[in-house]
Computed example of a mutant assay.
Amino acid sequence: MDINHLVSEIKNYYKEFEYDKLIVDYIFTLQGSYNFIVQYEKDNRYVESLVSNKPIRSVVREMAERYEELKDSEQKFNHVRIEINIDGTFSDKYWWDIGKEHQDLFDYANVFFQWANERMMSMIFDFEKDNNLLPTQYDNDDELEYLSSWDSGVFTFHINDKSELEYKIVLTKDGVERVLEMPLKDYFIKGILKHYHSTNTELSNIWKPWNTMVLKSPHNDIPSDKKDEFVSYILE
């Protein structure tokens, strides 16, 4: 990334108001998305820009590439501030905001059940389709249509004493339960273990200890405000 080119593009594009200084902030989440905020400072008064950065977005995004390159190094950052003076001189500062990191971890952990539910529904469909376990019918166009094999499910994930994932999948159709023996994808196992680790370490001051997560799936998306109804965290 060429910081001088980035500064030049920003200075040449943002001309909504007179200013003594342009203040540019990049604020990154742990997943790598970011807010890009530009403010005009004049006589110690601040006005935030309302224009889209789309015309220079390819240059603006170069900072996100730098974030990805450095996120696992000692030079990692999640906040960047660039202050551009009217004469074109500038200063840039990069730092790691621990408070924001903690909030990002909590926000992600708090909706993790939605990701887990969506991934489980997808994996179950693919597995049952590949193993001829789905009921089928032909539609009006004489094309094969796959039907649902379950109405609801209970997914139990347990982290044992060896920090390994044990799990059980129980599906219900028309009131009849069955256990589905299905391997989980590696990325999903890593996701569960990472969720377990972060909530029991970095978030232990606000998240109760647990080693078993029980997810009741309605075979549909779960609204965020229904978490307590569909998800339980238990310490066994």
Rank of each mutant, 00 (worst) to 15 (best):
N4E: 12
H5T: 10
S8W: 10
I10Y: 00
K11L: 12
K11C: 02
K15D: 11
F17P: 04
E18H: 11
E18V: 09
L22H: 02
I23T: 04
F28W: 05
T29I: 09
Q31A: 15
G32T: 00
G32P: 04
S33I: 09
F36S: 03
Q39T: 12
K42E: 13
R45Q: 14
S49I: 14
S49R: 07
L50K: 15
V51W: 10
V51L: 13
P55C: 04
I56G: 01
R61N: 14
M63C: 03
A64L: 02
K71P: 02
D72H: 15
D72L: 11
E74V: 10
Q75F: 12
I82P: 06
D87A: 06
G88L: 07
T89W: 03
T89E: 09
S91F: 06
G99F: 07
K100I: 13
D104E: 15
Y108A: 10
N110E: 12
F113N: 00
W115G: 01
E118V: 15
M120F: 07
M121F: 13
M121L: 12
E128S: 00
D130N: 10
L133N: 00
L144P: 03
W150R: 06
G153E: 07
V154C: 09
V154S: 14
T156I: 15
I159R: 09
I159L: 00
K162C: 01
S163T: 14
E164N: 10
Y167K: 05
I169E: 04
K173H: 05
M182L: 00
P183L: 09
L184C: 05
K185R: 15
D186I: 14
G191R: 03
S198G: 08
T199Y: 05
S204M: 12
S204A: 14
I206K: 09
V214L: 08
L215M: 01
L215A: 04
K216T: 12
S217Q: 03
H219Y: 11
N220F: 08
I222M: 05
V231C: 02
S232K: 15
Y233N: 02
Y233I: 01
I234R: 07
